[in-house]
Amino acid sequence: MSTPDVQAAAARWVDANGECLYRYALVRVRRPEVAEDLVQETFLAGVRGYEKFGGRSSERSWLVGILKNKIVDHFRKLGRETSFTDMEFLSDEFSEKFVSVGFWDHDKGPHEWKPEPDEVMHRAEFWQTMRDCLAKLPQKVRDVFTMREMDDVPSKEISAILSITDSNLWVMLHRARMALRECLEMNWFDKPAGGTA
């Protein structure tokens, strides 16, 4: 691709995907100036690596993939500076969900969920609910969860990046999933306007 072509493509990328990349970066890093830097680095890396793109996925998926790597790098730097174990959250057991011998309290156990993931993909309200539920997680736990589930980083790598033990990571992920599951059930699947409608 010639230089003017790349320039035109880059301007088009910013218009078509800038909003999406910026909002995702902001969900992850929370600071607008850091999010902006990450988005800029993503587009610069996109221009440099355009030859490798080859159209195997959509442009957005490709750019999101680059952004995910930039975010992981950001947390890699951050991980050296801060402790990532959120002990306050680790003490929460959702114990009211279980009877004393360790079985589910059947009235409070998981309900049946519908529909399938593909069906919610086109509903903005679902993504808003997920964002709101994520926002309720303590910051460090949310960072660990999003790195594992949204950026698809292997758990061993997360432990290394954030300098935490594997068992701490598993506990944090377990609590995050439990809290997020609960929040989605209450605010989406159990609501008439949500998935069960």
């Binding site: 909003e19 999406c20 990349l21 909002r23 995702y24 902001l26 969900v27 957005r60 998926s61 999101v64 952004l67 995910k68 993931p117 919610v120 993909m121 903005a124 679902f126 993504w127 808003q128 997920m130 964002r131 999003t146 589930e149 949204m150 950026d151 698809d152 999933r177 997020l180 599951r181 989605l184």
Partner: peptide
């Protein structure tokens, strides 16, 4: 949650 969370980044513009 795993299936939908990995799709979230591409739908971030709808989420906020």
């Amino acid at each position: 949650i795993h299936e939908t969370a990995r799709k979230f980044p591409e739908h971030a513009d709808e989420a906020s």
